[in-house]
């Protein structure tokens, strides 16, 4: 009976850790992986808040298309910020 509440707490905690690490990191390939992990945490929170259509639209965009787009741009420009 407490299961949705515990899941909500754990994944909110993990999402704020992943957001801070994604901004401070200098190697932008690792920062894109942290962004994908934050997208997974948010998708699970969308499911616990009972919104199935938004979950199905958010999973491919945040964990599939945005990191691939950033990888394509990184290959053609610089990879490590100064």
């Amino acid at each position: 009976m407490f299961l949705p509440v515990i899941i909500l707490l754990i994944f909110a905690f993990l999402s704020i850790v992943a957001t801070y690490l994604a901004i401070v990191e200098r190697d932008m390939l690792v920062a894109a992986i942290f962004m994908a992990f934050q997208g997974v945490c948010y998708a699970i929170i969308y499911y616990v808040l009972m919104a199935p259509d938004v979950t199905l639209a958010y999973i491919p965009i945040s964990s599939g298309l945005t990191p691939i787009l950033i990888l394509i741009v990184l290959k053609k420009t610089e990879r490590i910020e100064r």
Binding site: I16, V17, Y20, V24, E25
Partner: peptide, 10 residues
């Protein structure tokens, strides 16, 4: 250092 700062911020 980065991981410790992130966990303490959360």
């Amino acid at each position: 250092k980065d991981i410790i700062i992130a966990i303490s911020l959360a």
